[in-house]
Simulated scan of single mutants.
Amino acid sequence: MGESLLTIGAFARRSRLSQKALRLYDRLGLLVPAEVDQDSGYRRYAAGQLDDARLIVMLRRLDMPLADVGQVLAAEDRAAVLDAYWARAERRFAGQRQLAGHLSLRLSGKEEAYSMYEIKTRDVPEQIVLTEQRHVRQSELPTWIPAAWRRLNQAAKEHGGQSGYDFVVYFGEVSDDGDGPAEVCVPIASSTGVPEGAAARVEPAHREAYTRVRKADIGQPQMQSAYEAVEQWIGGQGLKIAGACREVACVDDYDAAGPDDEVYDVVFVISA
């Protein structure tokens, strides 16, 4: 005799899921009924599905998105997938905790919070740069920027070689809500001007105000604090921001740098 099936009401009570949630999970393929009546559409579940149903309940208590819940359910090693999710969540929580601390200082008017940053200026001569520009969101930057740099560094070999540090220009907000655009740039030692047939432009000579940030701070709220520190310093000096903000590499080998090594300059182009 086959296994007796539970009505959706009975299954909901035993699994501690609402019938509405069960219908949603069915549509998403997370928890498909063992049987659906073709005429009435009535759902019935096997008792053996209760373990998955209760697992979903607990995963949702972790605020796990349904897409990630599906990955856990589909995995052979569910524990490994859960551990990877939670490691990402803890990194996000740590960043949010730092951001909350930064905002608290900002909202309380404690401007000395920016005194930890040393602001410097420098003059940058005119450069010819190979570029790659696109609309991109924050979550895409860790993949796109290194890939663009590899492509442009390879292309630079055909145009006199690289002549300075890579940098990224942000022409608009890059976040989960804004997509820039952003531009990755690699200076080249071209003796014949802007090369034909390449995505390249002249970067005008300019003056910059900047501060340096550690590798551990990349992608963290400290980056926003660094930007605001430079902006605050510029205003305090009676200067003006004259161009899009940017991040300029300041090490030859980013991969070899340690968490506490300074790897980027947070930069604003300035004018009197």
Rank of each mutant, 00 (worst) to 15 (best):
A182W: 05
D253F: 12
G197Y: 12
M58R: 15
T211A: 08
R151P: 10
A34N: 06
G70A: 07
A46K: 01
I234V: 10
Q49G: 02
D179T: 04
Q19Y: 10
L30A: 05
G41A: 15
D166G: 04
A12P: 07
L82C: 04
D177E: 14
W149C: 07
E158S: 15
Y45T: 01
R212A: 13
V129W: 00
I119R: 06
V184H: 00
D123M: 15
Y254K: 04
Y264S: 04
T131P: 01
S271E: 12
I234Q: 04
V251S: 11
A100K: 14
P221M: 11
L24W: 00
A256E: 12
D261R: 15
L17S: 09
A216K: 02
G70R: 09
K157H: 08
L30I: 09
I188N: 00
L55T: 00
V168W: 05
V248M: 08
R134C: 12
A46Y: 05
V202F: 07
W233R: 04
Q71F: 04
Y170S: 08
Q127T: 09
L22P: 04
I234G: 09
Q232D: 11
C250S: 11
M64Q: 04
L66H: 09
R23D: 06
V81M: 00
A10E: 08
R23E: 08
R214F: 00
A256N: 13
V168K: 01
Y117N: 11
L5Q: 02
F11G: 00
A47Q: 12
A257R: 04
S115T: 14
A47R: 01
L130Q: 00
V251M: 07
H135T: 14
R88N: 11
A182R: 01
V213Q: 09
Q127V: 02
D63T: 09
A147M: 07
L17D: 08
A84M: 06
E111P: 09
L105H: 14
C245N: 12
A53H: 05
G109Q: 02
D52K: 03
D37P: 02
D252N: 14
D26C: 08
P259Q: 09
V136H: 13
Q237E: 15
A226D: 11
A12R: 09
L152F: 01
S163Y: 02
A229S: 10
